[in-house]
Design a protein around this nucleic acid. Structure first.
Length: 1052
RNA sequence: GGGCGAUUAGCUCAGUGGUAGAGCACUUCGUUGACAUCGAAGGGGUCACAAGUUCGAACCUUGUAUCGCCCA
């Protein structure tokens, strides 16, 4: 059948993908040979709310290349697709949707109803990105599409119908790790998002440089003490000396001053040495209740930054937190979950007294300190930014701001200008790095909160060892260094999020209890029934029960509380503080005089922790969770441990390292043996793609315009190990042209030489012509090149090798050289060449299929005609057998030498003609002055070919080169083009001289090396031999050109 | 401040000890029986800098400069 004029990607891609899926080409184990080893890739699960971006396109192209390659090789392959539930992103999307449709808000709906809405949204829109992966040609086993919330309450099982019960796996792991003491609850400074009212991970924080202010304030020394403040220049000369009764502090966040626990200076800072250990007063809040804090030393303050003294607010700054931990400085939390100044607790006077008591040595627990609210009444409930203004105003009004004098020009009423000196507070306007929530876009507040943690230090060991001993390989190697650096300095992993959408933590709280303290508990209970004490505060004294489900937790609670108690559970509606664990009795404990007797029946209500697990906790279980652990059967567990993980280097720690730790902790096996890391896809200039810059490239638009194959080829060619990924449209266009080239070469085979009617199979047809023997060898070489490139994850080498082979060797040489045969009349030669041509195209399609599946499959199907060898009908290319022939099998060195001689003659003639302006179209005569027997044989066999492509009409042997002749040198032969009438003698001389110049440079290097006795002594023999051969060849060429130059000079 | 990396042709990048390559761009030519989404020919680099190791360095070592990314 005649092929279309060009490949219509837009029309063919959808049709081909459907055909592959319909034929079950991508199912786990499809095309596997009997007893084949498994090869499995776990997709890095995209966010279920996501849409395909260039990063996904790149990442999935590489995965698809590997899986298609292995599938064709006959491995038992599985490429596992799926999405993660993306807690905060999904919750946000659904909340926004509710608002848009004017439906009740999340808070109005309550937890259960809201989660129904989320599942409904997932059912409707959650499949977007999975379907977009298909546009790219991704050959995942989509029947197994997984979801990290599969099996959780309310799951409608849409879009992940066959997914295993991921929820059970997550909960099981949590419970087991909890029981082993690997998971605990504690206070830590986290990135708090005041909009979503949850902790978020570092990855979800964007640090953005914004215009900020730096205020300078005076903290007066306690009791009016003074000291001599001395500043010196570099040479030690005193530049300032004054008596001060304060220490100057610079801050960009004055509202946090209320929670200061200390002022820190560098131990080597001489300016403050006299006052280290003294107390200073925090210059804000009601004067009579101002707290005194110590001046301490710590390595953290930078002497040259600001005044060199740093206020330490451990509960609201990551650096300060470390200083506070080192120095035992209390951390006072100032804000609530919305980022407003706290309004809870006792009056300010009482609270500040508590803090002062603690400072003087009274014992407080961490929770008790956290309960202290150091916000003065007049600031309570204010948004943090309003509070900042108020604090600045109050300090300035009191004269405790550091002032500066400025001269400004003012105009009076008549317009006269006058210079006026002004003293104003010192406020520096300077850019500061500020953290923003990547989804909420609000300023992230570092906040000390109760969170759940994995004690990562206890599980990191095996994950480190597996990479150190080479069991798991990370590419590029720099990734391993980063991995070690991360894991050797690992911190506790915060796994709780204050969200509803996610795996709810399987922990229930009840009152702490034992017989001795029962009365005390009852008393406390009595009090708390009427008090405003928060849930968070209550949990400090609560008993935690961790179990996979309610039945189990009730059993656990029974064991703890004993027979006297009835146990029930309460599902917290989700708003923090709305409920707390309770102990009930039929007696109204709040009635005066009421009391318990020993036989009174009691009830305990357990409350489930409202928090959910970080999405990374569940995606940390992705390899075993998707395969059905703990309920997996042999048909899925055989794919574990998986083979290759391809992902972005930015999540090496967040995801890769955690999968390593968790799989090793849970099933004691590595999750994968090789990790391939790549960078971010950037624009052509290397800028990050971002909506605000407007340089985002949509892969789907690229597919629409250039076809998926062009995009995929571009991705492969960019994928050098450790390479930077800059996406240039020009490059995509170039590879689109390559797709066309492949199509046209196939079309030539089809319409011009009817090659595809030839009978052929997987093995190369027998060939006698050097041209055909040569191309068969070249195919074998490129097959080896592609395989070794894929094995080494050098996708760029595979892509570039195929490109160069197909364009420069196959099309520019072989295809052209078949023309004299097909336009001649040697039928045997035609038959042989037809078969070889068709076979070579088949092989090229196979080798290019992993990178460009669509165009290759389309050509494969329209050209037909293969499978004669085995008698089997042609399979789809996606399941064609990957070849194993080697260069050693198929390269014919004689044919190779002959073709390179022919090509050299043609190229030299063409080059010489072009440089001396002989019209390319004109046919000219050629003479030969000298030719060896080998050269003569080559000429005789390839005369028609050389004449056609060098545009020569005759060859005459002469004894002496005619005057005015263009010299053509070839190995073992000297030719000339006697064109005295046409050529420009000066140009020909210039050409020869230029060639001599190039040769002289090469010869200089070669001779220099070979003359050096140490070279022959130290260099490997094959290098020396190569240099000798090279020198001989260059010398032969030099002699010929020198002679030609002498000849041409005769007529000049 | 710490970690990882980069610096090679006008641009984007390959190149792990044997004397420098690709694509694009550029110049000239071309309606030559697959292809103008093309073909032919060509120009273009002190491999950031400095010192060292080596017979030999873009590559290994040390230092310097500049630029990224991540963490603090």
């Amino acid at each position: 059948m005649a092929m279309e004029k060009a490949f219509n990607a837009a029309e063919a891609e959808g049709r081909l993908f459907e055909a592959w899926e319909k034929a079950g080409c991508f199912k786990a184990g499809a095309n596997a040979k009997p007893e084949a080893s498994t090869y499995c890739i776990m997709i890095p699960p995209p966010n279920v709310t996501g849409v395909l971006h260039m990063g996904h396109a790149f990442n999935n192209t590489l995965q698809d290349i590997l899986i298609r390659w292995k599938r064709m090789q006959g491995f038992d392959t599985l490429w596992q697709p799926g999405t993660d539930h993306a807690g905060i992103a999904t919750q946000m999307v659904v909340e926004r949707e509710l608002a848009k449709n004017q439906e009740p808000s999340r808070a109005e709906l309550g937890r259960e109803k809201f989660l129904e809405k989320v599942w409904a949204w997932k059912e409707h829109s959650g499949g977007t990105i999975i379907n977009q992966l298909k546009r790219l040609g991704s050959s995942c086993d989509f029947d197994r599409t997984a979801f990290t919330m599969a099996g959780a309450a309310g799951d409608t099982r849409t879009g992940h119908e066959n997914s295993s019960n991921f929820h059970d796996a997550v909960i099981k792991v949590f419970v087991e790790m909890y029981n082993k003491g690997l998971i605990y609850r504690g206070k830590r400074l986290v990135n708090w998002d005041p909009h979503f009212e949850t902790a978020i991970s570092d990855l979800e924080v964007e640090n953005i440089e914004v215009a900020g202010h730096m205020w300078h304030f005076k903290y007066p020394l306690a009791g009016g003490a003074t000291y001599t403040y001395v500043e010196k220049d570099e040479d030690g000369n005193v530049t300032l000396e004054e008596t001060r009764d304060y220490i100057s502090i610079a801050t960009t966040r004055p509202e946090t001053m209320l929670g200061d626990g200390a002022v820190a200076v560098h131990p080597s800072d001489e300016r403050y040495a006299p006052i280290v250990g003294k107390l200073v007063e925090i210059p804000v809040g009601p004067k009579e209740h101002r707290r005194l804090i110590p001046i301490i030393t710590d390595e953290y303050p930078d002497k040259d930054f600001g005044s060199g003294a740093v206020k330490i607010t451990g509960a609201h700054d990551f650096n300060d937190y470390q200083v506070a931990k080192r120095g035992g400085i209390p951390m006072y939390r100032l804000m609530d979950t919305k980022g407003a100044m706290r309004a809870d607790g006792a009056p300010y006077a009482d609270e500040t007294a508590k803090a002062q008591a603690h400072a003087k040595g009274a014992e407080f627990t961490e929770g008790e300190i956290d309960a202290i609210n150091l916000v003065p009444e007049n600031l309570r409930g204010l948004d943090r930014f309003e509070a900042r203004k108020a604090v600045v105003d109050q300090i300035t009004a009191e004269g405790l701001a550091v002032m500066q004098t400025r001269t400004i020009t003012v105009k009076d009423e008549e317009g006269n200008e006058a210079e006026v000196s002004q003293t104003i507070p010192m406020v520096e306007n300077k850019p500061i790095m500020q953290p923003f929530g990547d989804r909420s876009k609000v300023v992230i507040e570092p906040m000390l909160t109760d969170q759940w943690f994995v004690d990562a230090e206890k599980v990191v060991g095996p994950a480190l060892d597996a990479v150190k001993d080479g069991t798991v390989k990370i590419l590029p190697e720099s990734g391993e260094k980063t991995y070690y650096h991360w894991l050797e300095n690992i911190e506790p992993w915060c796994i709780s999020r204050q969200l509803w959408w996610g795996h709810q933590i399987p922990v229930w709280y009840g009152p702490k209890l034992d017989d001795e303290h029962l009365e005390k508990i009852v008393e406390e209970q009595r009090a708390s029934e009427t008090s405003d004490e928060t849930y968070w505060w209550r949990l400090d004294n609560a008993m935690a029960f961790c179990a996979p489900n309610e039945t189990a937790v009730i059993n656990a609670a029974k064991a703890y509380y004993g027979d006297r108690f009835e146990i029930s559970t309460h599902q917290d509606s989700g708003s923090v503080g709305a409920n707390h664990p309770r102990l009930h009795t039929q007696i109204d404990l709040n009635q005066p005089g009421s009391d318990l007797t020993k036989d009174d029946k009691l009830w305990v209500t357990l409350v489930r922790d409202p928090d959910v697990l970080d999405t990374w906790f569940s995606s940390g279980l992705w390899p075993i969770g998707t395969l059905g652990w703990p309920e997996w059967g042999a048909d899925t567990s055989k794919y574990f441990p998986t083979s290759t993980l391809i992902t972005g280097q930015d999540i090496l720690f967040f995801w890769v390292a955690r999968m390593m730790m968790m799989q090793l902790a849970v099933v004691d096996e590595i999750p994968f043996d090789t990790v391939y890391l790549h960078g971010l896809v950037r624009d052509a200039k290397g800028k990050k793609m971002s909506k605000s810059t407007g340089n985002v490239v949509d892969p789907l638009e690229i597919i629409d315009e250039y076809g998926a194959d062009a995009l995929r080829f571009t991705n492969a060619s960019m994928a050098s190990l450790g390479g930077v990924l800059k996406l240039d449209m020009k490059r995509i266009e170039g590879y689109r042209n390559f797709v066309t080239k492949l199509w046209q070469a196939s079309s030539y085979g089809d319409s011009q030489i009817d090659a595809f009617s030839a009978e052929r199979g997987a093995q190369p047809p027998s060939a006698t012509l050097p041209l055909n023997r040569w191309i068969i060898g070249e195919i074998a070489k490129v097959r080896e090149e592609v395989d070794s490139a894929f094995e080494a994850f050098r996708f760029n080498d595979a892509a570039n090798g195929l490109y160069a082979f197909f364009w420069n060797t196959f099309c520019a040489r072989y295809l052209e050289f078949t023309k004299p045969i097909f336009f001649g009349d040697d039928q045997a030669a035609k038959d042989e060449t037809q078969a070889v041509y068709a076979w070579a195209i088949d092989q090229a399609l196979i080798l290019m299929h992993p990178i460009m599946p669509f165009v290759t499959e389309e050509i494969w199907n329209v050209t037909e005609g293969r499978g004669f060898e085995t008698g089997e009908a042609a399979k789809m290319l996606a399941h064609a057998d990957w070849p194993t022939y080697t260069a050693a099998d198929l390269v014919d060195t004689e044919a190779e030498a002959e073709m390179s001689w022919v090509i050299a003659v043609i190229d030299n003639v063409r080059s010489a003609r072009a440089e001396v302006n002989v019209p390319a179209g004109s046919k000219v005569p050629m003479v030969v002055t000298q030719i060896d027997a080998q050269g003569q044989a080559y000429w005789d066999r390839n005369e028609a070919l050389i004449k056609r492509f060098a545009r020569i009409d005759s060859l005459t042997a002469v004894d002496e080169t005619p005057k005015g002749c263009i010299a053509i040198a070839a190995p073992g032969a000297s030719f000339g083009l006697p064109l005295a009438d046409i050529i420009d003698v000066a140009k020909e001389k210039a050409r020869l001289e230029k060639n001599l110049g190039k040769l002289a440079k090469e010869l200089g290097g070669l001779r220099g090396r070979l003359k050096n006795p140490k070279f022959a002594a130290s260099a490997p023999p094959e290098v020396v031999a190569e240099a000798r051969e090279n020198l001989a060849a260059r010398e032969e060429e030099e002699a010929k050109i020198s002679e030609a130059l002498a000849r041409i000079s005769e007529i000049a």
